[in-house]
Design a protein around this nucleic acid. Sequence first.
RNA 1: GCGGGAGUGGCGAAAUGGCAGACGCGCGAGACUUAGGAUCUCGUGGGGCAACCCGUGGGGGUUCGAGUCCCCCCUUCCGCACCA
Length: 865
Amino acid sequence: MSNVYEPREIEPRWQARWKSADAYRAKNPGEPGFDPAQKKYYVLDMFPYPSGSGLHVGHALGYVGTDIVARKKRMDGCNVLHPMGWDAFGLPAEQYAIQTGKHPRETTNENTQNFKRQLELIGVSYDWSREVDTSDPTYYRWTQWLFTRLFERGLAYRAQVPVWWCEELKTVLANEEVINGRSERGNHPCVRRPLSQWMLKITAYAERLLADLDGIDWPESIKIQQREWIGKSEGAEIRFALAGHAHETLTVFTTRPDTLWGATFMVVAPEHALVAKITTSAQRSAVEAYVAAAASKSELDRTDASKTKTGVFTGAFALNPAFDAADPRAKVPVWVADYVMATYGTGAIMSVPGHDERDFEFARKFDLEVREVVRAPSGSKALADGACFTGEGVAVNSGPIDGLATKLAKAKAIQLLEQRGVGKSKITYKLRDWLFSRQRYWGEPFPLLHLEDGTTVAVPDDELPVLLPPMDDFKPASDGSAPLARAQDWVATVDPKTKRPARRDTDTMPGWAGSCWYWLRFMDPSNAKQPFSKEAENYWGPVDLYVGGAAHAVMHLLYARFWHKVFFDAGIVHTSEPFQRLFNQGMVTAFAYQGADGRLVTSDEVETKGDAYAKRGSGEPLTQIVTKMAKSLKNVVNPDDIIAEHGADTFRLYEMFMGPLADSKPWNTRDIPGCRRFVERVWRLFVDTENDKPIRAHFAAGAADKAIEGDTLALEKSLARATKRAEDSFQALNLNTAIAGYMTFVNDATPLVSSLSRSQAERFLRLLAPFAPHLAEELWSRMGMPGLIVQASWPGADVRYLIEDEIDLPVQVNGKLRATAKAKKTANSAELEGIAREAVASHLAGKEVVKTVVVPGRLVNFVVK
RNA sequence: GCGGGAGUGGCGAAAUGGCAGACGCGCGAGACUUAGGAUCUCGUGGGGCAACCCGUGGGGGUUCGAGUCCCCCCUUCCGCACCA
């Protein structure tokens, strides 16, 4: 046994030992050794796409954080579920496979092996017996089974709808996967195309997805993003008759039915079905040109709010139901303009330029009437000032609702519309149904059969899984048709019920499908009869702490909540929400260097000159900036390299010591030696390196413990403070302060090591164990402590030692610190004031003390004139 | 434009309204060494180099006391963005 700290020897040894002891195995109810008295704790990482480039230190940040929490919870006596798996289906895996020319099955296996190797290197305490791979038939069998439940409930339907198509990726994409008209993955341009696709009726859950956000402990920013994405608006639907078209009506949605009396024109989206019907012959060529131009514009151009408004008059007029048909105000022109979205509301609006910015801008440009119908409260900018007023006020020029405040005016207007049968109250959501099919190879096949009679039925549960057919050429077809359609022997099958010929559905599910329920599979991962047992779900659900990046705010986290609610309705799970607490880890950024012209220089070309940076060779001065890690900047850091040099414990400590888990912060390899030195100091605190002995004699098994007095008492207090700080740090997950506390303790203990008792030493190791488990385990073993430290209990802080009997009393004069005096902790106000007065006597001389503030146990402040 | 987060030493960062800069990096000086890129000790916000003054993006305010609470502004990161 070497008495020099050698992580490369220590770490693999303990990792093997933990594995052979099955130290991180979580037991389900009913299993031998299951203890019903233990509380359960489910701490989950967002499982990764096993990409070809492996883990970098940013992924590891979250994994180290949850690992420390999991280890702490085990020490607290909880039955901890802390699993890991692979989100292996989907576009990235398939693209990587295409790039390398290998089958995705093969690359996925290689990549998951590499990820697992990296995670094991870090020493994370996953229960690997629960590992899942979403692309494994034993897993996707149940994804298909759960999809069937959605299908049975009418939540999956096939529809010809305008969907996003990405030519570069040769696939359709969900709304959530398209940002400003470009693909979320790869940033390729996308266009809308009407295609027949599988849709999931997430809109049926819009209200519950919104309302249930209130009951979960999630970051407010994520809740806001989900609320905005769901986009609930309350208002009214109003039907306008069209002059000269007795059988057509123009229906609009508005959140301000109270402004109906101010609607001076109508606007329909270029895609609106009525455009062709109502356009007059005089306007036809202009309208057709406008519609054609709108269709050819990119989504980005269409939706750019900063551009000036465009539009064309259709020649048609609508009749505002607020007015009698004979009233000259009733007849309003109908325009086509692309600032109205075809996909929201009814694709048409009533324009109230007096009280809507966009309508106001449009009316100004085309010289349309602006009528005031809401009087602004005095003091705010109103129509009279040449501005449009969008706030709440009092209705004017509005006949029956005149004089009513906006809230009442809305209600009254809706009531009038309903009485007259021309409108009703209406709630609209921005949320669209979820485009759920892809014409790609690497995904779950839909467990559906198309029968001869044109109907579609689910494959019976006992015929699942529907296996992906093995294909050598899995590339997407250039025309967008499904690759699975080329597997003709696979497509042609027989309906098990009728024994009649049937054709398999050739679409696959999107990458999100597997992640819509994986936290449930982890509860009971090898169940061959069900996706998971009721007992397992009842016990483990819901996830107590879910940690991952904020990037999934409206995709995975919304989809997962949706599926979970469907399961809840189907009686498959017992909670309506899957993740009780969500925590977003911050991004690990990296330094990058730029020249005076702003050009970035790859990090291997940079040299340090004291506090300054320069380009190697040329000596050009560079400035340090903070960016995302990027291959092109060569500033991506791989944990493997750090661990090879310093070991996993140092790596883990540095990841956490950088700052609070939630914060974004730059990786700085230069800072790592600080954590390495701490690890070495701990080592030397325990190991008798001077005499080349494995442990200091007074820490060895059987050594007599020391009485808690003198220096040992001082160390007891220091240890209590470190314990308290560590415990506090688990609340906000600012584990950096826990490590700082440990460093302080080691700094205190090092010069007094002969006074450090065996009990104090072993308790410190237990504090350290969640953070640096290998080091703690090695020293624990050298002390002759029984069992594994990773299965030991957390030592609580003894509050008696947190109380100081003597404090440093800050004494202020006019709020400024003038002296620090020693005072008994128990001293009363009068005694403190006396001590304080003496300490700052020179500052009080010749001054009048107007007021004295004494905060017992804290400070004294004299206010003088 | 709207919403959210964040601005504290040369750097990462601490701080229930109560001693700003804990802990660490870097840097400086010294000790021990054949040697030091090991280890240890001391120092390290700025200015005077003392007993003092100034300091948490800027400006106001509340308070005996503000990095922390309130108002206005600036910078920056993230999200959304013509949603009627």
